Simulated scan of single mutants.
Amino acid sequence: MNLPNLSQALLDKASQIKLVILDVDGVLSDGKVYYTNSGDEIKSFNIKDGLGIKLLHQNGIKTAIITGRESKIVERRAQELGISHLYQACPDKRAAFQELLQKESLSAEQVAHVGDDLPDVPLMKMAGLGFAVKDANWFVCQQADWISPVNGGQGAVRPIVELLLFSQQLLDATYNQYLA
């Protein structure tokens, strides 16, 4: 695996992760919001992230979305990917985080959060592992345990997935299934 800056401390934290919480705008999408003349909203999502999320699920790692905005597009994408928990219109994401811990009977150390901007910082600090995308706000990057080498919306979640699977010794078997 060609991921830089993988310290043993990072790998140890990553090996404990059972749930990955994702932000949407700026993480799963490029952070741009497009509106049509009829008022419809348009977002784009990267297919590499989608497969990565499915690979997490195949390996017993659950996913959730906690986002400050509300969008039917996000609801549809979450359903397509089998994301088990979706929290929208959460300007303060901490309550949703606490609810997820209770629902899944997890400790904070078993949760990772992926973010890109200031509303994500509280969850990055509460979670056992905080990730930022490459083009995240500078302050968010300072708070992160690791920064994806890819910009948000361009496949930034996929290297995070690979890091998590690698740390849990699941990456080789996961990728080798495509050789058969």
Rank of each mutant, 00 (worst) to 15 (best):
F139A: 09
G39D: 11
V74Y: 13
A9Q: 14
S107R: 08
Q154G: 00
K13F: 10
L51T: 00
A9G: 01
I47N: 06
G60K: 02
D23Q: 04
L118S: 00
L11H: 03
Q169E: 15
V20T: 09
Q143A: 01
T67S: 12
T63I: 00
D145N: 10
I61N: 07
I66K: 00
Y175M: 09
S84P: 03
G26Q: 04
R77F: 08
G50I: 06
S7Q: 08
G60P: 06
M124Y: 14
Q79G: 02
A132V: 14
E162R: 01
D49E: 07
L101A: 01
A14C: 07
G52P: 03
E41W: 02
L129F: 14
P159R: 01
F139L: 11
L101I: 03
T63V: 01
G39I: 04
L106Y: 07
V140M: 07
K13G: 13
K54A: 12
L123F: 08
D25C: 05
E99D: 15
K93M: 00
S84D: 13
Q16S: 14
L171Q: 08
R69Q: 10
L170G: 08
W138F: 09
D116E: 05
F45E: 07
K62S: 13
E104C: 11
G130M: 10
V114C: 09
Y34N: 02
A96S: 10
H85Y: 14
L3V: 11
T67V: 03
I65M: 05
L106V: 12
V121E: 10
Y34D: 05
Q16P: 07
L179Y: 13
K125D: 14
L81S: 13
E99G: 00
A64Y: 07
K72G: 15
Q58G: 11
G60M: 03
L163H: 07
V114I: 14
K54R: 13
V111E: 10
R77G: 02
K48N: 12
D135P: 06
L179H: 13
D135I: 03
V24F: 11
T36R: 04
K103Q: 15
A136H: 06
L55I: 04
G155V: 10
V27N: 12
A144Y: 15
A156L: 04
K103Y: 13
A127R: 02
V121T: 06
T63R: 00
A9F: 11
F97Q: 05
A96L: 06
I42T: 11
S15R: 09
D117R: 04
S29L: 04
D172Q: 12
L51G: 00
L100K: 03
L170E: 12
D12L: 08
V33P: 01
D25R: 02
R94C: 00
G52Q: 04
P149N: 07
Q88K: 01
A156T: 04
L129D: 11
P4A: 12
D23P: 12
A144W: 15
Q79L: 09
D145R: 00
Q154L: 02
M126N: 05
H57W: 05
S105T: 11
G130S: 09
V133G: 05
L6Y: 10
D23R: 01
V121C: 06
K18A: 05
L56W: 03
D135L: 05
G39H: 12
F139C: 01
E162D: 15
N37A: 15
I147V: 14
E104M: 06
A112D: 11
N176H: 13
D117P: 02
D25L: 02
P159I: 01
L129G: 03
E75G: 11
I66M: 01
